[in-house]
Computed example of a mutant assay.
Amino acid sequence: MRELTQPSRDEITFVEVLHALADPARLQIVAHLADGRRESCSGINEGMDVHQTTMSHHYRVLREAGLTWTTIEGRSRYVTLRRADLDARFPGFLAGVLTQLPEPARPS
């Protein structure tokens, strides 16, 4: 199995974060993870009407931008939001984005 590309905290760039958040599906994934849960990819996919290969692309973009951290356990992948890293790099940015989401997209 190939190793996942995940930038260190210092390698996270604002441009890549903005690019990743520009897609509504990726924004919805980030909102879903905002409460700090570690979530399986299949668990997040359940609430979204997006094809599996497209979801895999969205997870890769989020991971490579530094918004999420993915761990592999057996055949499952688990995703968490890198809130502490993002807050350290861009203080207040993620909180500002999350508060501007429409009600249905906000985490429960």
Rank of each mutant, 00 (worst) to 15 (best):
R2A: 07
L4P: 04
T5P: 02
T5V: 15
S8D: 12
S8R: 15
R9W: 01
T13Y: 07
T13K: 06
E16G: 03
E16S: 12
E16D: 15
E16Y: 02
H19W: 12
H19K: 15
H19Q: 12
L21H: 08
A22R: 15
P24D: 03
P24W: 04
A25K: 11
R26P: 08
R26A: 05
Q28R: 14
I29Y: 05
I29P: 03
V30R: 01
H32S: 05
H32K: 11
L33G: 03
G36C: 13
R37Y: 00
R38K: 15
R38S: 13
S42I: 10
I44W: 05
I44L: 13
I44E: 02
E46K: 15
G47V: 04
G47P: 04
M48P: 02
M48C: 02
M48R: 09
H51I: 06
H51E: 14
Q52R: 15
T53W: 07
M55C: 10
M55E: 04
M55N: 07
S56M: 11
H58V: 03
H58Y: 14
Y59S: 02
Y59N: 01
Y59T: 02
R60W: 00
V61L: 11
R63T: 13
E64L: 03
E64I: 01
G66E: 02
L67F: 11
T68Q: 09
T68K: 08
W69C: 07
T70Q: 11
I72G: 00
E73F: 09
E73K: 09
G74V: 11
G74E: 10
G74C: 09
R77S: 14
Y78T: 03
V79K: 08
V79I: 14
T80R: 13
L81K: 06
L81V: 06
A84L: 06
A84S: 13
A84K: 13
D85T: 05
D85K: 09
L86P: 11
L86C: 10
A88Y: 11
A88F: 10
R89N: 03
P91Y: 01
F93I: 00
L94G: 04
A95H: 13
G96Y: 07
G96R: 01
V97M: 09
L98K: 06
T99R: 15
Q100M: 11
Q100C: 09
Q100I: 00
L101W: 03
P102T: 02
P102A: 06
P104E: 06
P104L: 07
A105T: 01
A105C: 08
R106I: 00
